[in-house]
Design a protein around this nucleic acid. Structure first.
Lengths: 268, 268
DNA sequence: GAACGTTGTTTCGTTTAACGGAACATCGCC
DNA sequence: GGCGATGTTCCGTTAAACGAAACAACGTTC
């Protein structure tokens, strides 16, 4: 092995997978274009990724052949195609908790008048799976696909309290970024709160994500008793107090428990 | 050039992009795994795609590095990761008609009691963008991401009537597959119906998708007057008659018109 | 209206990285 | 304990990805 080869190998290992792989560029392109708000041009992308226009063009063609992206006939620019959305929806349906929760979500909305959200824990991330709009005048827009912070949201704190222990440990080790006015930033305080949430079986997060907003979340478990997600009502602090009404707590916990039961969970 | 090389070249041209491109395999893998209901194994995939296990493994690693797929630590099998869902949701939000319609959709649901769906026309396909659940006991599950047939659904027929003329032409030339009990299969009949829909400004499709189900759809236009999608109520034929009540028609058409207005459309 | 500066696209020879066979490391099962 | 699965790694071969440069099709500018 030559010296430069050794260096190349080292660099490879060091950067933990550089853009060595060609397919990798295709994936990066797809992701970039999806996060970009407007269609992208070949030249623009070639500058962005530091490669030639020819390469970008070839990759876009590959993506277009599989209908992952499309080219606007008028502007000649490229953008993600509808297929990506359709595949994403397919993936959503994989989460059993969603099917089990839908009915209960609308019922909870009727009972509370507030918007209802369902989240799940996937790959260590809390992601909103579904939203049922509330009946209030102003609506908070926690759209499906949104990723909630672990330490500064009701969904996240429920996941910390009832999800795998490793998740909490990792979260406590990391930096607790302040995502909103009243977000928790002290690890000790977080640990204390999570413990309380585990005891009481529900969590709130007033002014943690957005000022004036609160959520009340309860855990859902699957047939093995493993954490499957969180069900929550979300709305103005005017309707969901930092110390929520006993009735609201009972409604959310009840709904979550019934979803758990649908998933085959049986309380010991 | 050898003879086999000539053949290979010919095959390449004939099949209009075979699996020549390597990135192409990555995309096919991603799509296949998403449509598959359960996680996939390397061996299984290598048989499915007719390549070596080594190749499949390398591609899966590439996908995993970008977090498009994940490997179940327990079973070692691979499945699409949550990122795909998140990207799909990003894409959905690109459709302006969705943001403009959300409020009106819940209002229409309140007024009619039926489930409300919004579709758009993307790359010649009618795709359901959003669903607002109804208040009825049994719910029809037209989930977001679903692709509706052009000729045998209310959404599709509205697209044919108010979308680009080329779409209708192409549809009339193709075969009209029967997707439900009362689906239209005769091109002449379809042409006649589409004409009527264009005149009256709305469409129904009783028993076309599913027996006992009907939908009532009206078109939405953007600021340029171009077809932007369709708004519909969907429910049992018990509630939405094949000849729907005048009030229902007025409600749906009114809602669609207000969404159009939000998009900047002004009636001449 | 001709010259220019864009854009996306194509070609082509070089070189890199994708390829598959085979060996390897685990695991579960009989 | 050996068998038959699995997923993973290695390595020499070769095919396909690469970038430079030429190209074609617009818009703009002087």
């Amino acid at each position: 092995m030559t010296l430069s080869a050794v260096h190349a190998r080292k660099r490879h290992a060091a950067l933990t997978e550089r853009s060595r792989e060609t397919a990798d560029l295709t994936l990066r392109l797809l992701e970039f274009m999806t996060l970009e708000p407007a269609p992208c041009g070949v030249t623009e992308l070639s500058q962005q990724f530091g490669t030639s226009k020819a390469t970008i063009h070839r990759h876009l063609r590959t993506l277009a052949n599989r209908e992952f992206v499309r080219q606007d006939p008028a502007t000649l620019r490229y953008e993600p195609a509808i297929k990506l959305f359709q595949l994403g929806e397919r993936l959503r349906e994989r989460f059993g908790v969603l099917g089990a929760a839908r009915e209960e979500m609308t019922r909870l909305r009727e009972a509370t008048g507030q918007a209802v959200t369902l989240s799940t824990l996937a790959e260590g991330r809390v992601v909103v799976l579904e939203l049922v709009q509330g009946h209030t005048a102003v609506e908070f827009g926690i759209r499906p696909g949104t990723q909630m912070s672990l330490h500064a949201s009701a969904h996240g704190k429920v996941a910390l309290a009832f999800g795998p222990a490793a998740l909490l440990e990792r979260c406590l080790r990391g930096k607790l970024a302040s995502t909103g006015p009243d977000a928790i930033t002290d690890p000790a305080e977080l640990k204390r709160q999570v413990e309380a949430i585990r005891q009481q079986g529900w969590a709130t997060a007033a002014n943690e994500v957005l000022f004036g907003m609160n959520a009340l979340a309860a855990p859902v478990f699957d047939h093995r008793g493993a954490f499957a997600g969180a069900l929550a009502i979300v709305g103005s602090t005017q309707f969901i107090d930092a110390r929520p009404a006993a009735k609201q707590v009972a409604l959310v916990r009840g709904a979550a428990a019934r979803v758990s039961a649908t998933l085959g969970w049986r309380p010991e």
